[in-house]
Every structure is written in C-alpha cells, then in structure tokens.
Design a protein around this nucleic acid. Sequence first.
DNA 1: ACCCAGAAATGAACATTGTTCAAGAAGAAA
DNA 2: TTTCTTCTTGAACAATGTTCATTTCTGGGT
Lengths: 211, 211
Amino acid sequence: MPRSPDGTRTRRGELKERLIESALSLIEKQGLASLKARPLAEKAGCALGAIYTVFPDLDGLILAVSARTLAKLEAHLDAITVPDVEGRASPHEVALQRLVALALAYLDFAFAHRASWRALFEHRLPEGRPVPDWLIADQARLFDKVEALLEPLVPQLAAPDRATLARSLFSAVHGLVLLGLEEKLGVMAFPMLREEVARLVTAMARGLAAT
Amino acid sequence: MPRSPDGTRTRRGELKERLIESALSLIEKQGLASLKARPLAEKAGCALGAIYTVFPDLDGLILAVSARTLAKLEAHLDAITVPDVEGRASPHEVALQRLVALALAYLDFAFAHRASWRALFEHRLPEGRPVPDWLIADQARLFDKVEALLEPLVPQLAAPDRATLARSLFSAVHGLVLLGLEEKLGVMAFPMLREEVARLVTAMARGLAAT
DNA sequence: ACCCAGAAATGAACATTGTTCAAGAAGAAA
DNA sequence: TTTCTTCTTGAACAATGTTCATTTCTGGGT
C-alpha cells in the first residue's frame, strides 16, 4: 500500500487500491475476459486515462490482481487446522492428514473464488514480457507449503527431490481442481470432487511412501 | 471433409480445410492469442470476409481446430505400444505399465504440440455459448482410454466409480503436464518431467490398489 | 456467343476494444 | 494575484472481429 513520505495514504495509492478491488469484483462477476478498461474506470470512479497513470497497461493491473488473489489464497491455506489426534497418530499419519487438508483447502478456495482463481492461471502475458519476479516468488510459496509436509511422509527422499515432488503433488491436485470445476466437461458434484481429491492425495502419499 | 453430392470436394470444403490448417499453423507458431482474422485470411489465401462464409465466427473456427487437435491426440495415444513381457508379468503389472505409457504419451504430445494442445484448454467460449456436444464427446473419449485400463488395477471398484476415477487420474496427469510445461513457473527439464509423471502415476495406482 | 439470374467472394465500413497525449484543471510557490 | 508545476481528463488513434452492399463468377437457356 503506497504511502507518501509522511505516512499518509497517497491519492495514487487509493486509486490503485480502488482499481484492484474493482477489477477483482468485475472478474469475479463475469470472468477475466470481461475485464474492460471503460467499465473498470466507471466502477472505480475515475477517468479512462487514470488507469494508465497507475498501471502501465491492463496486464499490469491484472498482475496486481493476481498478487492480491495469491495473498488471499495463501491466507486461506494458512488457516487450516487439523483436529489433532492427541499423539495417538503417528507423525506419518498426521502429515498425511495435513496434506489432505491442504489439498481440500485449495479446492475450497478455488470453488469459492472460481473466477479470480482461474484468472490466476488463465491470464497470459504477451509474448516476450517476463512474469515479474515477485509474482513467481508468490507462487513458489505455494509449493513450499506442500514441501513442508513431505519430510515425514517420504523420509527416504533427499531435499531437492522433495522440492520436485512437492511441485508435482501440487500440480496433480491443481489438475483435479481445474478439470473438476471446468464446466466444459460437466462439473462434478462438489462433495464428490472433495472425495476424489482426498482419495487421490491419500493414494499418492501411500504409493510414494512404499517406494 | 465436406463433399458435394457427386463426391468431389467442394470449394467451401477446401476453404474450410485451408483455414483450419492455417489456423493450426499460426497457433503453433505464436499461440492462440495471436490468431487474428486478417493474418489468417492472408495465410489461407482468401478474403477477410471469406472466413465468415465458412464459420460463424473465429470461435467457431477455433472449435474446429480443437476437434482437429483432439483427433491428432487420440491417434497419438492409440499408437502407443508396451513391450509385452511375454506373460511373465501379472495382468496388474501389465495394466500399470500401459497406464504409465498412456500418461507419458499424453505428456509427449503436449510437449510436441505445446501451443495447439494448450489452446484446447485455454480457449473459452463467450458466456452463454454452449460447447458443442460433439466436442464434449471427443474429450470424453480421452477419459474412456484411461477407464479401459483400470479394471485390472482396481478390481474392487464398481464401474461408475471407475469412470469417476478415470476422470480424476486424467486430471491429475493433466495438471502435471500443464504446470510442468508452464514457463511461468520455470519449465522443468523434460526428462525429469517424464520421470515425475511415471512416478506419480505409479504411486497413485499402487496407493489405490491398496485401498 | 450472348445474356441473365442466382450464388459466391470481396474488402470497405462499422463497432468495440486498449492505449496515448494535447489540453485543461488543480495545486504550489511567489 | 500571478506564474509555474503537476496531475487528470477524455477525445482521438490503432488494432481487431464482424457485417453487408457491391462485384465477380458460374451455369443454363436462347
């Protein structure tokens, strides 16, 4: 949140904020493709040209929106709690439960914020424009959340292999969520989808541990 | 391939064909987003307006391209062969190998035809326009390929559950391929990606069989 | 050969978008 | 107040999908 040297909010900063929130709202209502400059300016209560005083172009704005969405997702994933079985369960069992809970939380977030979640992956920068490092770092933190749970589950793996595996596990769950919510293929009933996610994550963890 | 009553190719049919091929070529070179009407018309050697005599709009053309790509993918997946271990391996083991081979073939196709493969999932119809049934049916056949291999692997499951599982397995592999080839996250070295796909498919199959 | 009706093809013109920038408004300094 | 600077504005431009009046072609009848 940009502030002027004396710590008060700047005009620019408030405009930026209003634009991001308006964009999020428009995306959530009609999808990323419906984010048009003119309606956005109207919703944010600013002139058309004002957008370009704060962002280099609409892609820049969408990147900022992505960062916002990623932050929300991260907060959502950090909020999960697994009912602790009071030391009765093995560390392995606990880690597995946490992993399943993480995957389900990911699914729940995607379901609750479909459009903005989808925008995260749907949006593509024009050829040759690099994704900013800070956004890549934000995404990498998602993998880290998975990786943190893997140590008890696959103790036989070296750390670099665990990082790769974390990424793979994330990708697999991502795929389940993606096609599961894809209307194109006929949406799966949501409870069934949760079942499937839990089932596959459990199966993968078991299968990997046995390797 | 549309033909006139007497069996010869029609003018329209040839134009349609040229447009689909040109579109495929443009997509493969620069991605779906770079498919513009004017360059397309030039490449296909026809007038701008001619596109709209054969397709209702560009979305319609892209649907036709998707069908073409799906057909190629299907052919590619049907061509896989697994070196038969001469009855030495159990049916379970054979089915697992086939499943892994299928997943790897999917990955290979996506890698070899990145842009058109991605276009398959990237492209979204404008709100309210339904995906044609024939395209949904084409996609469903991919799930069927997986399902056909599941019987020996999870004999304890009822047929409807197997259909659901097939879809889930496909989705998980799809996710691996998608994020694996996503430059946004730093491409994984291709051989390593193949390893990961094989590893996770194997793990899932083992984990599921043990349930 | 010629003509003509219908079909097919054309590309100029239009609508909708992202983006720019000259002109004006608002603020700061004197 | 006057002047200078900075910020804001929305008309104008460029790129793009789509339409349709006009032109060109085609085949059959004379």
